[in-house]
Write a protein that binds this DNA or RNA. Structure first.
Lengths: 210, 210
DNA sequence: GTCTATAAATGGATAGAC
DNA sequence: GTCTATCCATTTATAGAC
Protein backbone atom coordinates (compact mmCIF):
# COMPACT_ATOMS: atom_id res chain seq x y z
CA UNK A 1 0.00 0.00 0.00
CA UNK A 2 1.43 3.33 -1.01
CA UNK A 3 2.09 5.93 1.66
CA UNK A 4 -0.43 8.29 0.18
CA UNK A 5 -3.18 5.69 0.50
CA UNK A 6 -2.05 4.70 3.97
CA UNK A 7 -2.36 8.33 5.02
CA UNK A 8 -5.91 8.51 3.73
CA UNK A 9 -6.83 5.21 5.29
CA UNK A 10 -5.44 5.94 8.73
CA UNK A 11 -6.73 9.52 8.72
CA UNK A 12 -10.28 8.35 8.08
CA UNK A 13 -9.91 5.83 10.87
CA UNK A 14 -8.59 8.38 13.33
CA UNK A 15 -11.11 11.04 12.36
CA UNK A 16 -13.98 8.61 12.76
CA UNK A 17 -12.82 7.20 16.07
CA UNK A 18 -11.26 10.17 17.82
CA UNK A 19 -12.91 13.11 16.10
CA UNK A 20 -11.36 15.21 13.38
CA UNK A 21 -10.69 18.25 15.52
CA UNK A 22 -8.53 16.28 17.95
CA UNK A 23 -6.15 14.96 15.33
CA UNK A 24 -3.23 17.14 14.33
CA UNK A 25 -0.96 16.54 11.38
CA UNK A 26 1.61 15.22 13.84
CA UNK A 27 -0.85 12.76 15.38
CA UNK A 28 -1.59 11.32 11.99
CA UNK A 29 2.07 10.92 11.10
CA UNK A 30 2.72 9.30 14.48
CA UNK A 31 -0.05 6.79 13.93
CA UNK A 32 1.57 5.93 10.61
CA UNK A 33 5.12 5.90 11.96
CA UNK A 34 6.22 8.46 9.45
CA UNK A 35 7.53 11.96 9.98
CA UNK A 36 5.37 15.08 9.77
CA UNK A 37 7.62 16.22 6.94
CA UNK A 38 6.76 13.12 4.99
CA UNK A 39 3.07 13.64 5.51
CA UNK A 40 3.44 17.17 4.21
CA UNK A 41 5.22 15.82 1.19
CA UNK A 42 2.11 13.86 0.22
CA UNK A 43 -0.55 16.31 1.30
CA UNK A 44 -0.39 20.04 1.82
CA UNK A 45 -1.85 19.42 5.26
CA UNK A 46 -4.89 18.12 7.10
CA UNK A 47 -7.04 20.25 4.82
CA UNK A 48 -5.92 18.39 1.74
CA UNK A 49 -6.53 15.04 3.40
CA UNK A 50 -10.04 16.03 4.39
CA UNK A 51 -10.78 17.33 0.93
CA UNK A 52 -9.64 14.07 -0.62
CA UNK A 53 -11.74 12.05 1.80
CA UNK A 54 -14.69 14.25 0.98
CA UNK A 55 -14.13 13.63 -2.72
CA UNK A 56 -14.59 9.93 -2.09
CA UNK A 57 -17.72 10.36 -0.06
CA UNK A 58 -19.13 12.76 -2.59
CA UNK A 59 -18.52 10.37 -5.46
CA UNK A 60 -20.05 7.43 -3.60
CA UNK A 61 -23.08 9.44 -2.56
CA UNK A 62 -23.67 10.56 -6.13
CA UNK A 63 -23.77 6.92 -7.24
CA UNK A 64 -26.14 5.91 -4.46
CA UNK A 65 -28.43 8.89 -4.88
CA UNK A 66 -28.68 8.55 -8.64
CA UNK A 67 -29.06 4.79 -8.49
CA UNK A 68 -32.43 5.01 -6.81
CA UNK A 69 -34.32 6.67 -9.65
CA UNK A 70 -37.55 4.86 -10.35
CA UNK A 71 -36.65 1.81 -8.33
CA UNK A 72 -38.39 2.55 -5.08
CA UNK A 73 -41.95 1.52 -5.83
CA UNK A 74 -42.35 -0.67 -2.76
CA UNK A 75 -42.02 0.14 0.90
CA UNK A 76 -39.44 -2.64 1.23
CA UNK A 77 -37.28 -0.97 -1.38
CA UNK A 78 -37.24 2.28 0.58
CA UNK A 79 -36.28 0.35 3.65
CA UNK A 80 -33.27 -1.25 1.99
CA UNK A 81 -32.34 1.98 0.29
CA UNK A 82 -32.19 3.76 3.61
CA UNK A 83 -29.78 1.17 4.94
CA UNK A 84 -27.46 1.67 2.01
CA UNK A 85 -27.57 5.42 2.42
CA UNK A 86 -26.98 5.34 6.16
CA UNK A 87 -24.09 2.93 5.83
CA UNK A 88 -22.36 5.21 3.37
CA UNK A 89 -22.83 8.15 5.71
CA UNK A 90 -21.60 6.08 8.61
CA UNK A 91 -18.34 5.32 6.79
CA UNK A 92 -17.60 9.04 6.81
CA UNK A 93 -19.16 9.78 10.16
CA UNK A 94 -16.44 12.16 11.31
CA UNK A 95 -17.78 14.53 8.77
CA UNK A 96 -21.37 14.43 9.97
CA UNK A 97 -20.50 14.72 13.60
CA UNK A 98 -18.98 18.18 13.17
CA UNK A 99 -20.75 19.43 10.11
CA UNK A 100 -21.00 23.04 11.16
CA UNK A 101 -17.38 23.34 12.08
CA UNK A 102 -16.06 21.69 8.94
CA UNK A 103 -18.32 23.55 6.60
CA UNK A 104 -17.32 26.94 7.77
CA UNK A 105 -13.67 26.02 7.85
CA UNK A 106 -13.87 24.84 4.23
CA UNK A 107 -16.41 26.95 2.35
CA UNK A 108 -15.73 25.06 -0.87
CA UNK A 109 -16.78 21.82 0.81
CA UNK A 110 -19.87 23.56 2.14
CA UNK A 111 -20.96 24.27 -1.41
CA UNK A 112 -20.41 20.68 -2.44
CA UNK A 113 -22.09 19.36 0.69
CA UNK A 114 -25.14 21.41 -0.16
CA UNK A 115 -25.03 19.68 -3.51
CA UNK A 116 -25.21 16.33 -1.76
CA UNK A 117 -28.10 17.31 0.51
CA UNK A 118 -29.87 18.78 -2.50
CA UNK A 119 -29.62 15.46 -4.30
CA UNK A 120 -30.60 13.58 -1.19
CA UNK A 121 -33.66 15.72 -0.79
CA UNK A 122 -34.51 15.15 -4.42
CA UNK A 123 -34.13 11.40 -4.01
CA UNK A 124 -36.51 11.45 -1.05
CA UNK A 125 -39.11 13.48 -2.91
CA UNK A 126 -38.87 11.06 -5.83
CA UNK A 127 -39.28 8.17 -3.47
CA UNK A 128 -42.36 9.66 -1.86
CA UNK A 129 -43.81 10.46 -5.27
CA UNK A 130 -43.25 6.96 -6.53
CA UNK A 131 -44.84 5.46 -3.46
CA UNK A 132 -47.75 7.84 -3.87
CA UNK A 133 -48.09 7.04 -7.57
CA UNK A 134 -48.19 3.35 -6.72
CA UNK A 135 -50.90 4.04 -4.12
CA UNK A 136 -48.65 2.80 -1.36
CA UNK A 137 -48.83 6.23 0.25
CA UNK A 138 -51.46 8.93 0.31
CA UNK A 139 -49.54 12.14 0.52
CA UNK A 140 -50.37 15.57 -0.86
CA UNK A 141 -47.42 17.64 -2.13
CA UNK A 142 -47.47 20.04 0.76
CA UNK A 143 -47.30 17.35 3.36
CA UNK A 144 -44.70 15.51 1.33
CA UNK A 145 -42.40 18.52 1.59
CA UNK A 146 -42.76 18.81 5.34
CA UNK A 147 -42.15 15.09 5.66
CA UNK A 148 -39.07 15.43 3.48
CA UNK A 149 -37.74 18.18 5.73
CA UNK A 150 -38.31 15.96 8.70
CA UNK A 151 -36.45 13.04 7.17
CA UNK A 152 -33.63 15.28 5.98
CA UNK A 153 -33.08 16.52 9.51
CA UNK A 154 -32.80 12.98 10.76
CA UNK A 155 -30.52 11.79 7.96
CA UNK A 156 -28.21 14.74 8.45
CA UNK A 157 -27.97 14.70 12.23
CA UNK A 158 -28.48 11.15 13.48
CA UNK A 159 -24.73 10.81 14.03
CA UNK A 160 -24.36 14.16 15.74
CA UNK A 161 -27.27 13.27 17.99
CA UNK A 162 -25.89 9.93 19.04
CA UNK A 163 -22.83 11.75 20.27
CA UNK A 164 -24.99 13.64 22.76
CA UNK A 165 -26.25 10.50 24.46
CA UNK A 166 -24.58 8.97 27.45
CA UNK A 167 -25.19 5.45 26.26
CA UNK A 168 -23.95 5.46 22.72
CA UNK A 169 -25.05 2.90 20.17
CA UNK A 170 -22.61 0.89 18.12
CA UNK A 171 -22.73 1.43 14.38
CA UNK A 172 -25.18 -1.25 13.26
CA UNK A 173 -27.70 -0.68 16.03
CA UNK A 174 -27.59 3.06 15.51
CA UNK A 175 -28.31 2.54 11.85
CA UNK A 176 -31.22 0.25 12.69
CA UNK A 177 -32.62 2.72 15.15
CA UNK A 178 -32.40 5.53 12.63
CA UNK A 179 -34.04 3.56 9.84
CA UNK A 180 -36.85 2.73 12.23
CA UNK A 181 -37.20 6.37 13.19
CA UNK A 182 -37.61 7.37 9.55
CA UNK A 183 -39.87 4.51 8.55
CA UNK A 184 -42.18 5.19 11.47
CA UNK A 185 -43.16 8.43 9.80
CA UNK A 186 -44.84 6.62 6.93
CA UNK A 187 -47.54 4.27 8.30
CA UNK A 188 -50.02 7.08 9.02
CA UNK A 189 -50.15 7.70 5.28
CA UNK A 190 -50.50 4.08 4.25
CA UNK A 191 -54.22 3.74 4.87
CA UNK A 192 -55.51 0.41 6.19
CA UNK A 193 -52.20 -1.34 5.84
CA UNK A 194 -50.49 1.26 7.97
CA UNK A 195 -51.37 -0.45 11.22
CA UNK A 196 -49.87 -3.74 10.12
CA UNK A 197 -46.87 -2.00 8.62
CA UNK A 198 -46.14 -0.30 11.90
CA UNK A 199 -46.38 -3.53 13.86
CA UNK A 200 -44.05 -5.09 11.30
CA UNK A 201 -41.55 -2.30 11.78
CA UNK A 202 -41.41 -2.71 15.51
CA UNK A 203 -41.20 -6.47 15.23
CA UNK A 204 -38.34 -6.26 12.79
CA UNK A 205 -36.53 -3.77 14.97
CA UNK A 206 -36.84 -5.92 18.08
CA UNK A 207 -35.68 -8.98 16.20
CA UNK A 208 -32.63 -7.23 14.78
CA UNK A 209 -31.52 -5.59 18.01
CA UNK A 210 -32.21 -8.59 20.23
CA UNK B 1 -23.63 48.38 33.28
CA UNK B 2 -20.78 46.64 35.02
CA UNK B 3 -17.86 45.37 32.96
CA UNK B 4 -18.58 41.79 33.91
CA UNK B 5 -22.10 42.03 32.54
CA UNK B 6 -20.95 43.85 29.45
CA UNK B 7 -18.54 41.02 28.75
CA UNK B 8 -21.33 38.46 29.01
CA UNK B 9 -23.66 40.53 26.91
CA UNK B 10 -21.23 41.23 24.10
CA UNK B 11 -19.86 37.69 24.14
CA UNK B 12 -23.32 36.22 23.63
CA UNK B 13 -23.89 38.67 20.81
CA UNK B 14 -20.61 37.82 19.11
CA UNK B 15 -20.97 34.08 19.61
CA UNK B 16 -24.48 34.11 18.17
CA UNK B 17 -23.63 36.29 15.20
CA UNK B 18 -20.12 35.22 14.27
CA UNK B 19 -19.89 31.76 15.78
CA UNK B 20 -18.19 30.86 19.02
CA UNK B 21 -15.16 29.22 17.48
CA UNK B 22 -14.21 32.35 15.56
CA UNK B 23 -14.09 34.60 18.58
CA UNK B 24 -10.88 34.73 20.57
CA UNK B 25 -10.48 36.33 23.98
CA UNK B 26 -8.78 39.24 22.21
CA UNK B 27 -11.68 39.68 19.78
CA UNK B 28 -14.09 39.95 22.67
CA UNK B 29 -11.97 42.50 24.50
CA UNK B 30 -11.60 44.50 21.28
CA UNK B 31 -15.34 44.58 20.76
CA UNK B 32 -15.68 45.93 24.29
CA UNK B 33 -12.79 48.36 24.00
CA UNK B 34 -11.06 46.87 27.00
CA UNK B 35 -7.73 45.11 27.24
CA UNK B 36 -7.33 41.32 27.17
CA UNK B 37 -5.82 41.59 30.64
CA UNK B 38 -8.97 43.20 31.90
CA UNK B 39 -11.12 40.52 30.40
CA UNK B 40 -8.99 37.91 32.13
CA UNK B 41 -9.45 39.76 35.39
CA UNK B 42 -13.20 39.16 35.21
CA UNK B 43 -13.20 35.70 33.67
CA UNK B 44 -10.53 33.06 33.64
CA UNK B 45 -10.99 32.95 29.86
CA UNK B 46 -13.47 32.18 27.12
CA UNK B 47 -14.27 28.93 28.92
CA UNK B 48 -15.54 30.73 31.99
CA UNK B 49 -17.65 33.06 29.86
CA UNK B 50 -19.23 30.17 28.04
CA UNK B 51 -19.89 28.35 31.27
CA UNK B 52 -21.61 31.38 32.73
CA UNK B 53 -23.72 31.81 29.62
CA UNK B 54 -24.63 28.16 29.82
CA UNK B 55 -25.67 28.62 33.45
CA UNK B 56 -28.18 31.19 32.32
CA UNK B 57 -29.57 29.05 29.56
CA UNK B 58 -29.73 26.06 31.86
CA UNK B 59 -31.63 27.97 34.52
CA UNK B 60 -34.10 29.41 32.01
CA UNK B 61 -34.66 26.02 30.40
CA UNK B 62 -35.36 24.45 33.78
CA UNK B 63 -38.07 27.02 34.41
CA UNK B 64 -39.65 26.52 31.01
CA UNK B 65 -39.47 22.75 31.11
CA UNK B 66 -40.89 22.45 34.59
CA UNK B 67 -43.54 25.07 33.95
CA UNK B 68 -45.36 22.89 31.46
CA UNK B 69 -46.39 20.12 33.82
CA UNK B 70 -50.06 19.35 33.43
CA UNK B 71 -50.81 22.44 31.43
CA UNK B 72 -50.68 21.10 27.91
CA UNK B 73 -54.08 19.51 27.56
CA UNK B 74 -54.94 21.21 24.28
CA UNK B 75 -53.18 21.19 20.95
CA UNK B 76 -53.06 24.99 21.05
CA UNK B 77 -51.14 24.86 24.32
CA UNK B 78 -48.48 22.64 22.79
CA UNK B 79 -48.20 25.02 19.92
CA UNK B 80 -47.55 28.01 22.15
CA UNK B 81 -45.29 25.98 24.37
CA UNK B 82 -43.11 25.07 21.42
CA UNK B 83 -42.70 28.73 20.54
CA UNK B 84 -41.53 29.55 24.02
CA UNK B 85 -39.07 26.68 23.99
CA UNK B 86 -37.67 27.51 20.56
CA UNK B 87 -37.27 31.16 21.42
CA UNK B 88 -35.23 30.31 24.49
CA UNK B 89 -33.03 28.02 22.42
CA UNK B 90 -32.68 30.69 19.77
CA UNK B 91 -31.37 33.16 22.32
CA UNK B 92 -28.43 30.84 22.90
CA UNK B 93 -28.15 29.63 19.36
CA UNK B 94 -24.35 29.68 19.26
CA UNK B 95 -24.49 26.75 21.57
CA UNK B 96 -26.77 24.64 19.41
CA UNK B 97 -24.95 25.37 16.21
CA UNK B 98 -21.76 23.71 17.41
CA UNK B 99 -23.06 21.30 19.98
CA UNK B 100 -20.61 18.50 19.27
CA UNK B 101 -17.59 20.73 19.43
CA UNK B 102 -18.59 22.49 22.63
CA UNK B 103 -19.64 19.36 24.43
CA UNK B 104 -16.40 17.59 23.96
CA UNK B 105 -14.39 20.63 24.78
CA UNK B 106 -16.29 21.01 28.06
CA UNK B 107 -17.27 17.60 29.38
CA UNK B 108 -18.89 19.14 32.44
CA UNK B 109 -21.27 21.07 30.21
CA UNK B 110 -21.96 17.90 28.26
CA UNK B 111 -23.26 16.30 31.43
CA UNK B 112 -25.48 19.26 32.19
CA UNK B 113 -26.65 19.49 28.61
CA UNK B 114 -27.74 15.88 28.79
CA UNK B 115 -29.70 16.93 31.83
CA UNK B 116 -31.50 19.53 29.77
CA UNK B 117 -32.30 17.17 26.91
CA UNK B 118 -33.44 14.60 29.44
CA UNK B 119 -35.90 17.08 30.91
CA UNK B 120 -36.96 18.19 27.47
CA UNK B 121 -37.64 14.62 26.48
CA UNK B 122 -39.61 14.14 29.65
CA UNK B 123 -41.65 17.26 28.97
CA UNK B 124 -42.49 16.00 25.49
CA UNK B 125 -43.54 12.59 26.78
CA UNK B 126 -45.73 14.29 29.38
CA UNK B 127 -47.24 16.45 26.73
CA UNK B 128 -48.04 13.49 24.50
CA UNK B 129 -49.49 11.59 27.43
CA UNK B 130 -51.70 14.48 28.44
CA UNK B 131 -52.96 14.90 24.91
CA UNK B 132 -53.61 11.17 24.75
CA UNK B 133 -55.39 11.18 28.12
CA UNK B 134 -57.60 14.00 26.90
CA UNK B 135 -58.40 12.00 23.75
CA UNK B 136 -56.83 14.66 21.59
CA UNK B 137 -54.29 12.11 20.36
CA UNK B 138 -54.41 8.38 19.87
CA UNK B 139 -50.89 7.20 20.53
CA UNK B 140 -49.65 3.94 21.97
CA UNK B 141 -46.55 4.16 24.21
CA UNK B 142 -44.23 2.60 21.68
CA UNK B 143 -45.14 5.02 18.96
CA UNK B 144 -45.04 7.87 21.42
CA UNK B 145 -41.39 7.12 22.12
CA UNK B 146 -40.42 7.04 18.46
CA UNK B 147 -42.30 10.29 17.92
CA UNK B 148 -40.49 11.80 20.89
CA UNK B 149 -37.15 10.81 19.39
CA UNK B 150 -38.16 12.42 16.15
CA UNK B 151 -39.16 15.67 17.82
CA UNK B 152 -36.02 15.69 19.95
CA UNK B 153 -33.86 15.46 16.86
CA UNK B 154 -35.62 18.45 15.38
CA UNK B 155 -35.53 20.53 18.55
CA UNK B 156 -31.83 19.86 19.01
CA UNK B 157 -30.65 20.43 15.47
CA UNK B 158 -32.96 22.90 13.77
CA UNK B 159 -30.36 25.65 14.23
CA UNK B 160 -27.47 23.53 13.05
CA UNK B 161 -29.49 22.55 10.01
CA UNK B 162 -30.38 26.07 9.04
CA UNK B 163 -26.68 26.81 8.89
CA UNK B 164 -26.31 24.25 6.12
CA UNK B 165 -28.79 25.98 3.83
CA UNK B 166 -27.75 28.53 1.27
CA UNK B 167 -30.81 30.67 1.86
CA UNK B 168 -30.87 31.09 5.60
CA UNK B 169 -34.03 32.06 7.44
CA UNK B 170 -34.15 34.94 9.85
CA UNK B 171 -34.90 34.06 13.46
CA UNK B 172 -38.68 34.39 13.59
CA UNK B 173 -39.35 32.62 10.32
CA UNK B 174 -37.00 29.81 11.21
CA UNK B 175 -38.86 29.36 14.48
CA UNK B 176 -42.20 29.29 12.64
CA UNK B 177 -40.92 26.77 10.16
CA UNK B 178 -39.63 24.53 12.92
CA UNK B 179 -42.84 24.68 14.94
CA UNK B 180 -44.73 23.73 11.81
CA UNK B 181 -42.37 20.86 11.17
CA UNK B 182 -43.00 19.46 14.64
CA UNK B 183 -46.74 20.05 14.70
CA UNK B 184 -47.14 18.35 11.34
CA UNK B 185 -46.20 15.09 13.01
CA UNK B 186 -49.36 15.07 15.10
CA UNK B 187 -52.42 15.26 12.80
CA UNK B 188 -52.18 11.60 11.75
CA UNK B 189 -52.89 10.68 15.35
CA UNK B 190 -55.77 13.08 15.85
CA UNK B 191 -58.49 10.99 14.21
CA UNK B 192 -61.19 12.84 12.28
CA UNK B 193 -60.06 16.26 13.35
CA UNK B 194 -56.58 15.62 12.04
CA UNK B 195 -57.41 16.70 8.52
CA UNK B 196 -58.77 20.04 9.63
CA UNK B 197 -55.92 20.50 12.06
CA UNK B 198 -53.39 20.01 9.30
CA UNK B 199 -55.11 22.50 7.03
CA UNK B 200 -55.17 24.91 9.94
CA UNK B 201 -51.45 24.48 10.48
CA UNK B 202 -50.59 25.27 6.88
CA UNK B 203 -52.92 28.21 6.83
CA UNK B 204 -51.44 29.64 9.97
CA UNK B 205 -47.95 29.15 8.63
CA UNK B 206 -48.70 30.92 5.36
CA UNK B 207 -50.37 33.78 7.16
CA UNK B 208 -47.45 34.28 9.54
CA UNK B 209 -44.70 34.09 6.93
CA UNK B 210 -46.50 36.13 4.28
C1' DG C 1 10.35 9.44 -0.57
C1' DT C 2 11.66 10.13 3.87
C1' DC C 3 13.99 12.16 7.68
C1' DT C 4 15.35 15.96 11.38
C1' DA C 5 15.22 20.37 12.83
C1' DT C 6 13.23 24.55 13.11
C1' DA C 7 10.51 28.49 11.83
C1' DA C 8 6.09 30.87 11.81
C1' DA C 9 1.40 31.70 13.40
C1' DT C 10 -2.13 31.59 16.52
C1' DG C 11 -4.52 32.00 20.74
C1' DG C 12 -4.50 31.40 25.76
C1' DA C 13 -2.72 33.23 29.97
C1' DT C 14 -0.05 35.99 33.54
C1' DA C 15 2.94 39.68 35.87
C1' DG C 16 3.41 43.96 37.39
C1' DA C 17 2.65 49.05 36.82
C1' DC C 18 -0.95 52.51 37.35
C1' DG D 1 -10.36 47.65 37.80
C1' DT D 2 -7.70 48.42 34.06
C1' DC D 3 -3.63 48.64 31.22
C1' DT D 4 0.82 47.10 28.67
C1' DA D 5 3.97 43.86 27.83
C1' DT D 6 5.30 39.41 27.58
C1' DC D 7 5.31 34.52 27.92
C1' DC D 8 3.83 29.91 26.92
C1' DA D 9 1.64 26.10 24.38
C1' DT D 10 -0.05 24.16 20.41
C1' DT D 11 -0.11 23.25 15.67
C1' DT D 12 0.95 24.21 11.06
C1' DA D 13 4.37 24.40 7.62
C1' DT D 14 9.07 24.52 5.43
C1' DA D 15 14.20 23.86 4.56
C1' DG D 16 17.70 21.04 3.68
C1' DA D 17 20.22 16.57 4.53
C1' DC D 18 20.03 11.54 3.35
Amino acid sequence: MKTRDRILHVSLLLFNEEGESHQTAVDISNALDISPGNLYYHFKGKDAIIRTLFDRHDAEMKIILNGARGRLAQIEDSWIYLYILLEEIYDFRFFYRDLGLLLDRYPDLAVRFRGITGQMRHALVDMFDELTAGSVLRLDPRLRDVLTDQVMTTLTFWLAEDRLNTDRHDGPSLIHKTVLQVMCLLPPYMGEEGVDALAGLFEHYDRVTA
